[in-house]
Design a protein around this nucleic acid. Structure first.
Lengths: 167, 167
DNA sequence: ATAAACTTTCAATAATTATTGAAAGTTTAA
DNA sequence: TTAAACTTTCAATAATTATTGAAAGTTTAT
């Protein structure tokens, strides 16, 4: 496998993995492209490399910036804008975990809490609903906590030590 | 909030969360419905409750069975088939984590390994590709390991002790 | 063997989501 | 100011994904 093949394979794999962290294909591919690029890229560069339209590039870049995963880079003497992504994988994981927790997991925890707090009217089905959603609420909260803690450490000692502890 | 409201809210929330664990809405809703049901449900029951077609119900039930999350229940004297889902949240989490790892994460790890193993031709861009995909490979593998270990414990002591350790 | 009761399959269709591209908007240089 | 260089917006369209429903398939009771 040569450089071009490897690059293409990486970008397309990372792109299809996008769904796993809750973003669309183009967004994930742009991030992937920036992730292995040695210098900041312009919108033009990205459109060219990924063969996507200007509008698509613009919108997805904005979203990536909104996630905090991509930053605008101003290059002196250049008119157009350039973009880079966070290059440190630990930091990247931290940002993704934080955003997913905030956007998706926290709202679900809230609903689970509401639903599991309804008044017990004594019926079997109500008891079951309360019991099951309560269990789900606890589990979701525990996993969310672990994820955030793991990923909020400024160094990666925690992941490493959990790994050691766990193996 | 009364029982019916809570039930509807739970099912629709769980349904929209489906994407988070990589399954479709109907599939997630069927699982949610079974999760809070006090007895096994027939295809007829599920169609009625969720207002979905027979074909849809059949296909998604099959997928849930394939995931190992739902089982067929044979009720003596009944002609039709009945279904239940795993009721223990820990066990449910275990199954989901295992399946996601197998279906999505493992294949990505494989690609990252391949891509990061290309021959270093000395160019800056190749060095960057190798460096970045290698870092991603390691991180992904670590997180996959933690996830699987966490979830493979037969009791939930591990989650609890990590939580204590981490807090 | 037959038919009723039930489940599965899958082509057609609907719903959702992503993408385009051109017009409108903004910034900068002269 | 003006116009060139660039970015954003968004209605239209394309691509993808989910859903339907009726025909085909299967099982069970008689």
């Amino acid at each position: 496998m040569n450089y071009e093949e490897a690059k293409t394979k990486f970008i397309s794999t990372w792109g299809s993995l996008g769904t796993l962290w809750g973003i669309n294909k183009a967004m994930a591919q742009i991030q992937a492209l920036l992730f292995i690029s040695t210098q900041p890229l312009s919108m033009e560069d990205i459109m060219e490399e990924l063969q996507i339209s200007r509008g698509n590039t613009s919108m997805n870049l904005r979203q990536l910036i909104d996630w905090g995963v991509v930053v605008k880079e101003l290059i002196p003497g250049e008119r157009k804008e350039f973009f880079t992504t966070e290059k440190d994988v630990q930091e990247l994981a931290r940002i993704i975990a934080k955003e997913r927790s905030r956007r998706e997991i926290k709202p679900v925890i809230k609903v689970l809490n509401e639903v599991s707090s309804i008044k017990d009217d004594g019926s079997e089905k109500t008891k079951e609903l309360i019991k099951q959603t309560k269990a789900l609420h606890e589990l979701t909260q525990d996993l969310d906590t672990i994820m955030n803690k793991m990923v909020n450490q400024k160094q990666n000692w925690l992941t490493k030590s959990i790994l050691k502890f766990i193996k």
